[in-house]
Design a protein around this nucleic acid. Structure first.
Lengths: 233, 233
DNA sequence: CCGGATCCGAATCGATACTG
DNA sequence: CAGTATCGATTCGGATCCGG
């Protein structure tokens, strides 16, 4: 038996042996946004030791989750296999579940481009969006800037900053309908703990271009319900 | 910042900090079947060191996932909070995902009552079951025996062996429609890699009581599709 | 027997340095 | 850019022990 096997013949156990090691799920999270170079992953996971990143990528390849693809001109990228992409609903569900337990950011916590992209996908409500007018948001949180385009029941997110060699997909041209500049307080907007109006009043979010009312459409489109919580005792 | 924090303000990261440590997800898997004593958990996870079980239960309580409940007469059980129970679809999806990568069991792998119960829940197809006659199966795999009752789109699983102090729910009375005795080869039946007929011919599953044709209903009711797999290269 | 706590060697992780 | 190498700090695993 493998040294670190859980010793059970079970699907959950097998899954956890494939993607349960420390950092593995976060590598998958970032690769769900798109193929990434080794260096991109390292920047997106600032606290990962380089030897661990290297080891995880090797294990994920052996598990058939990740593939190493040489680029035409130079370098190479890692990308999810189709089997790895099947983790998308699981990672989104985990993000939704974990969202409920997020408090204030700890000292030193960062928001990365890929984590914010996945957070928007996590919070996206296609059923709500389909009943609203299309909208094109530019969202800034810390150093990260994204362009989130909602058309019908579909969300498309592109990274504006920090810049990255584009590996596919092109940026929408033209101006966004609204430019939202936020801090971590955007969590409370998405959780519905504060209304869009309060968020602007309390400077959690600023609408620096476009109509402030668009923040209401944003908050309706991107929302995670607080789960019912029973007492711990 | 906490020592082992990932240093990101993100829902996925928060989730992984809550249930990403080694063994934590398997503790949750077993608690999804029902409340369990410390000793039950230890038997259901034969390779977990006792200090790790103790540490995980403490962490899961601090995270609001698990609750410690004293029993009326003596002892105590651990059970999931409502927040913890929200992990059910995630654990089931992980089980389905991992199922696709399961090969033959490793030397020393075991099948436990709770893992087999969750495997049946993982594989259960309510949409298929609702179109079939109700069925009451007794399933044996290794030392584990379960009673799986399918009525309409609902599955109920009870453990027969190994015996456990019942914490709720009572066993169906009467005889099951079929008694299935299987080994790990039942995986191939659920995966659709072998037909029920082949499974009986090759002795992967024996129908020791009831009509052998009931194995077909079983295989239709409990099924996990192989995902589309692309080449690793 | 239940529900752990303690101790210690082995394996893994984290941080930094270094290389083709 | 894409990793290896190294080494101290943690965590894990296995066994034992303990109070009720």
């Amino acid at each position: 038996m493998a040294a670190r096997s859980y010793g059970q013949y079970c699907g959950v156990t097998t899954a956890v042996e494939l993607i349960g090691e420390r950092w593995a799920m976060l590598i998958v999270r970032d690769l769900l946004v798109g193929p990434r170079r080794y260096t991109d992953l390292k920047q997106g996971l600032p606290r990962i030791p380089t030897n661990i990143l290297s080891a995880r990528l090797k294990e994920l390849q052996e598990g058939g989750v990740v593939r190493r693809v040489p680029l035409k001109h130079c370098g190479l990228v890692y990308e999810l296999t189709s089997y790895g992409r099947e983790l998308e609903p699981i990672v989104l569900a985990l993000g939704r579940w974990g969202f409920a337990q997020m408090g204030e950011p700890e000292e030193g916590d960062v928001v990365t481009g890929d984590s914010l992209t996945m957070a928007l996908r996590t919070a996206f409500r296609p059923d709500v969006a389909v009943g609203l007018e299309p909208a094109d948001y530019e969202v800034h949180v810390g150093d990260v800037a994204l362009r989130a385009v909602v058309v019908g029941d579909t969300l498309t997110v592109h990274r504006i900053a920090p810049a990255m060699a584009p590996v596919g997909g092109r940026m929408p041209d033209g101006e966004p309908d609204a430019v939202l500049v936020a801090g971590p307080g955007i969590r409370e907007v998405i959780a519905g703990d504060v209304t869009p109006g309060e968020a602007i009043d309390r400077d959690l979010v600023a609408v620096v271009r476009g109509e402030p009312a668009l923040l209401e459409r944003f908050a309706a489109t991107f929302h995670i319900d607080a789960p019912h919580r029973d007492a711990v005792a």
